[in-house]
Design a protein around this nucleic acid. Structure first.
Lengths: 177, 177
DNA sequence: TTTTTTATGGACCATACGGTCCCGATAACG
DNA sequence: CGTTATCGGGACCGTATGGTCCATAAAAAA
């Protein structure tokens, strides 16, 4: 999963996977079936873990608004560090495959829906806390936030500076607050 | 360029390129040097053409606001049609390579800067037409618009519906107008 | 017309790819 | 202890990859 996340599907070779996992070829094929199936399982695991983590973060957050703001400002951190600029596996996969592979497209759709749901929950909570008007379309706002997040991560990949990310995050958030 | 745009770098094989161009292998190598060099030239040409077209569209637009609105609403059209969901070559490349290839990273940076510039010009014009407050940071707004556009195109690739694209575009634009 | 440059088709190459298979080691089980 | 199921190392396979080379054909220059 880490490897696919960092390099994408096509650029990750079987040898890369063997080196990273420490498995032999036969073991990897016995366990995962094929490179493609392993990729599918990687996306699925990624989505499960990320959505679970996001829900936990939202639950532990002081407020819905705090959660949303933290999410966007923390993108600036991805400019630096060891796993720098690797983006989001689901969105990376959407970009690499688009709709050319039906199975992958389904997993991507499942992933984006999961992200929509988390952000919609966050928006609803923020509404109930009085920081977002109650008459706003929560689903539309959630999709907007996921879209903006995805754009921000693409900017990181394109080489944007942390300062640009933060100033853009400010504008994104100004739509809500 | 069309092929790289549709399929990305790794997924486009030399045979694909020969078939599409109608050239023989030696001719293609004599003309473009290598697959990698051809890709670089494709990105460069893409950027030049697109930036030129955008500038022309902006000049011909009834207003800066009209230009910006048209840009975002027209993304919904990319859901359907023959060249559906292929996104933007520069952003696709940013996603595929991130910063792993220095030459490519430079071309991506050049591309994004070109997009920033066009949108900054559009924002400035819109300010002078009184539709955006004069005290707004035009560069920051331009980067925001490019970021939002890139996110929107990724949503298209992820399989979003035209309706979702339009409602998200509305929210993106509500930040400015 | 002859010479020199340029362009092109196609054979050829080494290698890296994803994937299969078998046989020996190990571990679980009776 | 003996038997059976599981696991993994590595040889092997066919193919597609990006890339080179050369001999010839066409065109440009002399």
């Amino acid at each position: 999963m880490q490897l696919f996340w960092r390099k994408g599907y096509e650029s990750t070779s079987l040898n890369d996977l063997l080196r990273e996992t420490g498995l032999s070829k036969s073991s990897l094929y016995q366990t995962f079936g094929s490179k493609h199936l392993l990729f599918e399982q990687s996306i699925d695991r990624y989505r499960q873990c990320l959505v679970k983590d996001l829900k936990a973060m939202l639950n532990n957050a002081r407020s819905g608004r705090q959660f949303i703001e933290d999410m966007f400002y923390s993108v600036a951190d991805e400019v630096k560090g060891k796993n720098a600029r690797r983006g989001c596996l689901v969105m990376n996969t959407a970009s690499e495959f688009a709709q050319s592979d039906l199975v992958i497209a389904g997993l991507v759709k499942q992933g984006t829906r999961g992200f929509y749901d988390v952000f919609e929950t966050a928006v609803r909570r923020t509404q109930s806390e009085g920081e977002i008007p109650a008459n706003e379309d929560t689903r539309a706002l959630a999709i907007y936030l996921v879209t903006a997040m995805s754009g921000l991560k693409t900017q990181v990949k394109a080489g944007a500076s942390a300062a640009d990310i933060i100033s853009t995050a400010k504008i994104i958030l100004s739509t809500l607050f």
